[in-house]
Structure formats: C-alpha cells, structure tokens
Design a protein around this nucleic acid. Structure first.
Length: 277
DNA sequence: AATCGGTTCAACCGCCCTCAT
DNA sequence: GATGAGGGCGGTTGAACCGAT
C-alpha cells in the first residue's frame, strides 16, 4: 500500500486566490511552517485548496523574500547566460536570482527576454555594454536558413564570438539553442581559459572537453588524435572530424574540431546533438 | 465609450523522481 | 520489489490588463 490520497479534488476550490485565503495561508505558514507536508496543510489551515495549490501560492507569491517588480539588466544577463548554458531549467536559473521564482523567470523569458534577444540578433549587433557584462556574445555573420533543397544535411549556423572584453571563463559563449534550431559552430578569437569546462543545453550529456576527446595544452584545446591529423592549411595545427556516441543518452554527436595557430578553435555539432535528439 | 488584438502572469496540468508503505 | 502518494518541475492556459483604433 502507498500513502493516503492527497486531497478530494471534487471539493477543493480552484482559480484565483482571494485576499482572505492569502492571509490565512500566510498566517498559518508563518506560525506553524509547512511541516514538510503540503498535502495536509490546507486542512490544518482551514483552506479549501489542494496542497499543491497552497505550495505554489506560497512559493510564487506569498513568501516574504519574494521580489516583485521588473527585472534589472543584471538579472537579464544572468538569465540569458544560464539559459544558454542549460536551457529551460527554470528552477536552477531562479536559484541564482534571489527573490525570483521559477515561474517569474519562465514568464519573463517567454514574454519579454526572448523577444528582446531575438531583436538583438536580427540586427547582428549587440551593444558594447552588453558584451562587457559578459552575457551575450557579439553575433555576426549569421547565415540564412539552409535551402529547402538540402533539408537532410546537418546545418551549422556560424557565430563569431568576441571574448576580448571580459570573458574569463568559457561557460557563457553559446547561443540560445532553442533559437538556433539546428546546429551551430563557435569560433573564439582569444586565448582560451585554463578551465575549459563547457556547458551545453544538455549539461548531463557533455560537460567537459575530455568527453569530446580533447585536452588542454598551453592554453590550446587539443584533440586526442592531433598527431594523426592532417594539416590542411598553414594556419591550422590540426583538423579532425569524429563521431562520439554518448552512452545512455541515445543520441550521437558529430564533432569537428579545428585547432588554429592563432588561438582559434571551432566546433560543429549536428542538429541531433543540439536538439538533444 | 466600445471594440479588438496583443501582452502579462497567476494558476493549473501532467509528467517524473523519490520515498513511505 | 511493487505500489502509489508527495514533491518538484517545465509547459500551457486563460482571465485580466493595456494600448491602439
């Protein structure tokens, strides 16, 4: 046997909370706490609400440390940085923003921030101040979508990213993956940091260069098969392409690494990887 | 003043993982 | 080990709001 049913769904009130209900819940939690059991709380507090509804109301609205009102530019930067790293993990993103809830962040992203970023990308220019905040890299040369006549080919958009101002860690450079749609490549034009931990939209899949068969030598990302690679151009130390199967994740990474003499590197990932298929 | 379309955001839904039974 | 509720989370909905006409 499991536990008892959480609530009688036929006899609970739904919809917007009244000021009286808010006051009842707030007073009860401030005096008694949640007791670690939201399902039992409404009956104890004298509310005709489902425990889950009480929990949501408390966490998203009634908590004393909730910050109401507009988001600051700094918060914008944090949100877009973290979204670029891990996608729609709203609770994790919200945990980095004191006083903000996952619901707040999610709503803000969906209604304002996404449009703001898309508007910025469409112009191919990000303001200097934004770049200096280390959040959104400077996107240039964004190509158009591939021709309809070649839909079966993996497609890589190219973003030239400028880390020359404030990037001290490589954890922020990636574009908003849900907006990219299918594949991307990244080209860095400065010395790479010593801690090449890379974050993608699926951080559970690839979090370190070693998982792509790459290591760091003298501030250069070097692939494990460097010695066997061909030198295709005087600027290139090595060029290679390889496929990596990610155990347990059921998808496949197409990876191309270029190690350049002037501290540039690039990766290309297939549509399947970027979209987590 | 009325209407309409777009936007916002609180609340709900449904899924997944954990854990008590 | 199996079952099923509790808790947490991301996605979606819809009422309220707002501005344009």
């Amino acid at each position: 046997m499991g536990r008892a049913p959480c609530c009688d769904k036929a006899n609970v009130k739904r919809g917007p909370w009244s000021p009286e209900e808010d006051a009842t819940l707030k007073n009860y939690v401030e005096v008694h706490g949640t007791g670690g059991n939201w399902i039992a709380l409404p009956q104890k507090a004298g509310l005709k609400r489902c425990g889950k509804s009480c929990r949501l109301r408390w966490l998203n609205y009634l908590r004393p440390d909730i910050k109401h009102g507009g988001f600051t530019e700094e918060e914008d930067n944090i949100i877009c940085t973290l979204y670029s790293q891990m996608g729609s993990r709203w609770s994790l993103i919200a945990s980095q923003l004191p006083g903000r809830t996952d619901n707040d962040v999610k709503n803000y992203w969906n209604t304002k921030l996404k449009k703001k970023l898309l508007a910025g990308k469409s112009g191919f220019n990000i303001s200097k101040s934004t770049i200096n905040n280390g959040c959104v890299p400077a996107y240039t040369n964004i190509p158009t979508q591939p021709a309809a006549s070649q839909p079966c080919l993996p497609y890589a958009e190219t973003y030239n990213l400028d880390y020359s101002t404030s990037q001290s860690h490589i954890s922020t450079p990636f574009p908003i993956l849900s907006d990219v749609g299918c594949g991307f490549s990244v080209i860095s034009t400065q010395n790479l940091p010593l801690d090449p931990v890379m974050h993608f939209s699926r951080p559970d899949a690839v979090t370190h260069l070693s998982q792509l068969g790459a290591t760091l030598e003298n501030n250069h990302i070097v692939t494990s098969s460097r010695e066997g690679s061909s030198i295709s151009d005087s600027n290139y130390l090595a060029t290679e392409s390889k496929s990596v199967s990610m155990p347990g994740n059921g998808y496949h990474v197409e990876y191309t690494g270029n190690i350049l003499m002037d501290d540039q590197f690039s990766y290309e990932f297939s549509y399947e990887f970027v979209n987590g298929i």
